[in-house]
């Protein structure tokens, strides 16, 4: 043990840790990079191009080769090669500079979109992944699912019509329910509407919207509109959004005379010694957790009050049908009550 020195040992250890970190660090670790490099990227590029073309053509825009190269964060030459390849396969037609989808190209694109949205639905219903992660995960998964797998998935999920952002999911035959709505940024004051869609792109804005705890299915009422901001009330809270955020939220306008209950609140803002009645559970809670809440007695009309506060603030225990049940705030915020 004559070469032993605690300091040296520590340094060696730190060195090993650093190496390990460089190798396995999330996203940019060498290990992942090597792994990724070995995967075939051709298919992914082709499918990404198809999707991009489809979305743009749907919005009435046509892209040229340059646009595609620019928007796709991939090796330029590979993208150009892929486009040529797709033309020979008959997925796209190139006229001049413009790239247009053929029938089989747009069918293919729809299949990818179907896989993407179904996977998001799956993530939302069956797993606990954060909403802000759904899109990223589906971006990867859409390239991996085969057609049979996609159909099986759809079957397992009960052939849903919409993804969790409110986007329609194409059927096997490529049909898609139409989305009729107005962006919140274009609503006049005092309009009442139900949120039917929240755009999941761009990421930054989507994350901001999610951070505000706004979700699909909520009824909103616009109370103020100016070029700087839009203010609306929903479920007992006021939301102030910049127009760019509001533009990413779509609502379907409800009849004026529908009675919008101003005093619908979320359970998490109930205070001690207050009593309330349950109005319902937000559509945001789905699947297993929705059933469990119903079974625990959080059904329409049940009266609820706070039983216990928590030393750490969360979860709180609610007294419902004679029993004290603890819920975390994010779940309580999706139970609607009326005082």
């Amino acid at each position: 043990m004559n070469t032993y020195d605690p300091l040296l040992a520590l340094l060696v250890f730190l060195g090993i840790c650093l190496l390990g970190f460089l190798f396995f660090r999330p996203n940019n670790g060498w290990f992942w990079l090597i792994n990724k490099g070995s995967q075939s990227t051709d298919k992914i590029i082709v499918e990404d191009i198809l999707k991009r073309l489809y979305h743009n053509e749907n919005a009435g825009k046509y892209l040229n080769i340059n646009d595609i190269v620019r928007t796709l964060k991939q090796n330029d030459k590979m993208v150009i090669d892929s486009i040529d390849n797709m033309a020979t396969l008959g997925l796209v037609r190139i006229s001049g500079d413009i790239v247009k989808l053929t029938k089989s190209g747009s069918d293919y694109a729809l299949r990818i979109i179907r896989a993407h949205r179904l996977w998001e639905r799956y993530l939302a219903d069956k797993t606990g992944f954060n909403k802000t992660e759904w899109h990223q995960r589906a971006e990867r998964k859409e390239h991996e699912l085969s057609m049979d797998e996609t159909n099986l998935l759809a079957h397992k999920l009960g052939n849903p019509q919409f993804d969790p952002h409110g986007d329609p999911i194409p059927t096997i035959t490529g049909k898609m329910a139409e989305l009729k709505g107005v962006p919140v940024s274009e609503l006049k004051t005092h309009t009442i509407g139900r949120i039917i869609h929240i755009k999941d792109k761009p990421d930054i804005i989507y994350k901001q919207i999610m951070a505000e705890n706004i979700h699909i299915g909520s009824i909103i009422r616009v109370v103020e509109k100016s070029p700087e901001r839009i203010v609306f009330h929903s479920e007992g809270e006021a939301f102030k959004l910049a127009p760019i955020m509001a533009g990413n939220i779509t609502v379907s306008i409800l009849e004026k005379n529908i009675s919008y209950e101003e005093d619908i609140l979320r359970l998490n803002i109930l205070k001690e010694n207050e009593k309330a009645k349950i109005i319902g559970i937000s559509k945001e809670i789905r699947g297993e957790s929705r059933r469990r809440l119903l079974d625990l007695g959080f059904v329409k009309g049940a009266s609820v009050s706070i039983d216990l506060l928590n030393p750490l603030g969360e979860p709180k225990a609610y007294l419902i049908k004679g029993t004290s049940i603890a819920l975390r705030n994010d779940q309580a915020s999706k139970i609607l009550i009326k005082k």
């Binding site: 992944f129 469990r292 216990l308 049940i325």
Partner: peptide
């Protein structure tokens, strides 16, 4: 945060 990545699911506990 790593191998078992995912959001916390719901929690409900009868006291």
């Amino acid at each position: 945060k790593t191998v078992l990545k995912g959001e916390v699911s719901t929690f409900n506990l009868e006291l």
